[in-house]
Amino acid sequence: MNIFRLLGDLSHLLAIIVLLLKIWKTRSCAGISGKSQILFAIVYTSRYLDLVTTYISAYNTFMKLIFVVAAYATVYLMYIKFKATYDHNHDTFRMEFLVIPSLILALLINHELTVLEVLWTFSIYLESVAILPQLFLVSKTGEAESITSHYLFALGSYRGLYLLNWVYRYYAEDHYDLIAIVAGLVQTVLYCDFFYLYITKVLKGKKLQLPA
């Protein structure tokens, strides 16, 4: 474990908690893409199947359980409990355009052709684009609540911190995983324009408004 990965995991955990609190406290999921949340549930389900096969540490197991449970809880809140507040008119990104290519790519480019490894690779590819429906929703509505932008900032920072973790592990532990690194780069780059808007606007107390 290193400080970059620890901060990354905590940033990820913070994002998930902020989102759950936003939906629970405001009893509304307006401005949140349910499709991205479904994609995250798929990502963690396909990545954390090794929960039943390999034990790495209490921390690893605990965090994986939190991420999976929180993903499904968010989907439940959005599509069942607070269904009436779900913005399905704007949340129109086609998930299959992300899931199917990720699955095909995972079958073509992976480290070994086993079920667990292909599912892990699929989860890595899918996670790198899973935020697209959310960013698409924000661009369609042209704005985002500040709590939603804090959620996105924490979520985008987590994988950016993981990039630093991989640099550290390359020098300190002399290994690297190109699949995770390339996907992590794509994932972090997708947040760049949002990061710019967040830092130039939200941190100055303005609302996150996308240029029309």
Binding site: R5, D9, H12, D50, S57, F67, E112, Y162, Y176, D177
Partner: peptide, 10 residues
């Protein structure tokens, strides 16, 4: 080789 990359990340 890839074998020595531990799958210990979240």
């Amino acid at each position: 080789s890839y074998k020595n990359v531990p799958k210990d990340e979240l």
